[in-house]
């Protein structure tokens, strides 16, 4: 048979690199704190309708601009609406937007970046031109321009569809806002992901284990999906964590400027904008949404830093 005795593995810590990373992440207190805050917020956003004591739309003009109390922990706004309920619904908006925008941007970025990095050539050059151009224009400006130029054609098209089908869904202008604002946010958010994936793929595609996979005769598709992309995932996960936070802040920024979510749909951005006008008299209207936004942003940063340390430990390839 073969030379020497059969070797059996010594029983040290078993597990994949992912499990090792999770172990490192759990030891990082700030990252765990960020994770807990975000998990709570996701739960609150998901179960919002069952948690909120009041409807976020119902006005009570007898109870306007009330300071925080037992009945209204965050007080009420100038239309007598419960601020806590609106903050919770704002979390729904923020998470929905952040997840959708990031998912779309990630999908576009991974597919384009992986193809560009793996195959190179003219497609790669063209893609890099597009990403350079997109990233060189201020995001806010770009979104405003895309919005301004697309809003009218889309509105007209929706109107035409409504007259054709009489389906009330085409009458819902909130949908237009959502699609437009967050479509354009996704359109400007994918280039960083594409660049990151491309850079990762470029560095991984010449690693010996990829050459070894070629020597086995495996197809490009298998090599890309099973050898290259899993090894590119670490930095991508960090980028997604940061990207979710950025998308939330961006959504609030657009809503603050009045080009994002339109009232009466609550968004932290438009709540801050409303609160800012009256903050000397009713500071709780500004503080409640602003504090929540700040906490969420910080939580994403803690988690992102922790993920970065956990997935790219020093001294490990």
């Amino acid at each position: 048979m073969t030379a020497g005795p059969i070797i059996t593995p010594g029983d040290d810590r078993p597990g994949s690199l992912w499990r090792d990373a999770w172990r490192r992440l759990r030891r990082n207190r700030l990252a765990v704190a960020g994770l807990v805050i975000l998990a709570l917020l996701v739960l609150v956003a998901a179960f919002g309708p069952w948690l909120t004591p009041y409807d976020f739309l119902s006005q009570n003009l007898d109870a306007r601009n009330l300071p925080p109390s037992m009945a209204h922990p965050f007080g009420t706004d100038d239309l007598g609406r419960d601020v806590l309920s609106r903050v919770i619904y704002g979390a729904r908006t923020a998470f929905l937007v952040a997840v959708l925008v990031t998912a779309v941007a990630l999908l576009i970025g991974v597919v384009l970046g992986a193809i560009a990095g793996f195959y190179g050539g003219a497609f790669d050059k063209g893609l890099m031109w597009v990403t350079d151009m997109t990233m060189s224009v201020p995001q806010l400006l770009l979104v405003v321009v895309i919005n301004a130029s697309l809003k009218q054609p889309i509105t007209l098209w929706m109107e035409a569809r409504y007259l054709e089908t009489l389906n009330p869904i085409y009458r819902n202008s909130a949908i237009i806002d959502f699609v437009l604002v967050f479509g354009s946010m996704a359109l400007i958010s994918w280039p960083p992901y594409a660049r990151l994936v491309r850079a990762q793929v470029l560095s991984i595609r010449n690693r010996p284990y990829v050459t070894a996979a070629r020597a086995l005769g495996l197809t490009n598709r298998i090599i890309l999906t099973r050898y290259v992309l899993p090894n590119a995932a670490g930095p991508l996960i960090v980028a997604v964590s940061a990207g979710l936070g950025t998308a939330m802040v961006l959504e609030s920024a657009f809503s603050f400027l009045g080009i994002g979510v339109n009232p009466p749909t609550p968004s932290w951005g438009n709540m801050i904008s409303d609160g800012l006008r009256v903050w000397t008299n009713y500071p709780h209207l500004l503080l409640a949404p602003a504090a929540v936004l700040a906490v969420v942003t910080v939580a994403f940063n803690f988690l992102g830093d922790g993920l970065n340390d956990a997935l790219n430990p020093k001294g490990q390839k």
Partner: peptide, 19 residues
């Protein structure tokens, strides 16, 4: 490729770390 195989120099980098 089935018939003609290769063993590389550096065993630390010729195996996919995620597999």
């Amino acid at each position: 490729r089935r018939d003609l195989q290769i063993v590389f120099q550096d065993p630390y980098s010729t195996l996919n770390p995620r597999m």
